[in-house]
């Protein structure tokens, strides 16, 4: 987890700084102070140009309930996306995205609800201090972008993206935290869960509210758990807030 977190911070930092352009001046060879070939050709790359690469980070909250109306308290759902946009017209663009997706479900403790009990707790309903299930995924998507302000200069403007995504599970963990004797606490993590589906897919939509901020929603069609699993299916509808990193 820590390594993944560090990798994430690293990727975020790299992409953030790469979005800042370098100064044209250089002092190579110790003496050259300014050297420029003025270029008045029309650029092909830019927020409202033919090609553009956008970095977004987003957090999400599940707004529906788990299977059987179980109220699963959502933990931290995080995604970091690279979105490539290909402009077709002033109004339309298509694109593709690559994303790291961390999804986390904090499971409310309830005497009447069982989650992973069949697999790890001899089918007995056990309440824990905290119980959670989380996954790391790599996700790709394709999207259609509809812009609402065709005269928007070289900015992304206001738009709606409608996307379909598929993701591959990199790893999933089931984790419990318990109080044990003498005030000590215990954390147990179970990995290599064979009850989760490796592939998932769904649809999503997002709206640019400001240049730097988007809101969106996604819906997962596929089940996180295999059909023969007894674990109730986790919530599917994710409300999201996006931050446009390289705006």
């Amino acid at each position: 987890m820590n390594k993944l977190f560090l990798a994430l911070v690293f990727a975020f930092t790299i992409s953030f700084f790469s979005s800042l352009s370098a100064v044209a001046q250089n002092d190579e060879e110790g003496k050259e102070l300014i050297s420029e070939k003025p270029d008045s050709s029309i650029a092909k790359f830019g927020a409202n140009r033919r090609h553009y690469l956008q970095y977004v980070a987003l957090i999400g909250l599940y707004v529906d309930q788990a299977e059987g109306n179980i109220d699963v308290r959502t933990g931290f759902d995080f995604q970091y996306k690279f979105l490539y946009k290909r402009k077709l017209t002033k109004v339309l663009a298509i694109g593709t995205g690559l994303c790291y997706h961390y999804q986390n479900f904090v499971l409310n403790q309830n005497d009447n609800v069982t989650y992973f009990e069949q697999y790890f707790w001899n089918n007995q309903n056990v309440n824990h201090r905290k119980e959670r299930f989380y996954q790391h995924n790599i996700q790709s998507e394709i999207f259609l972008r509809i812009n609402f302000d065709p005269k928007r200069g070289n900015t992304l403007g206001k738009y709606i993206d409608i996307a379909g995504y598929g993701e591959y599970r990199l790893g999933s963990r089931y984790q419990v935290y318990d109080n044990i004797a003498n005030g000590l606490r215990e954390k147990r993590t179970f990995s290599k869960l064979n009850i989760t589906n490796p592939f998932n897919y769904g649809i999503s939509a997002r709206v640019a509210v400001f240049d730097f901020l988007l809101v969106g929603v996604s819906y997962r069609y596929s089940d996180l758990f295999k059909s023969n699993s007894t674990v109730p299916e986790m919530p599917r509808t994710l409300a999201q807030i996006y931050l446009n990193i390289n705006n």
Partner: peptide, 11 residues
Amino acid sequence: KLVYYNVTDIE
């Protein structure tokens, strides 16, 4: 129209 310009600190 300039196609190139340069400033160099020379000795």
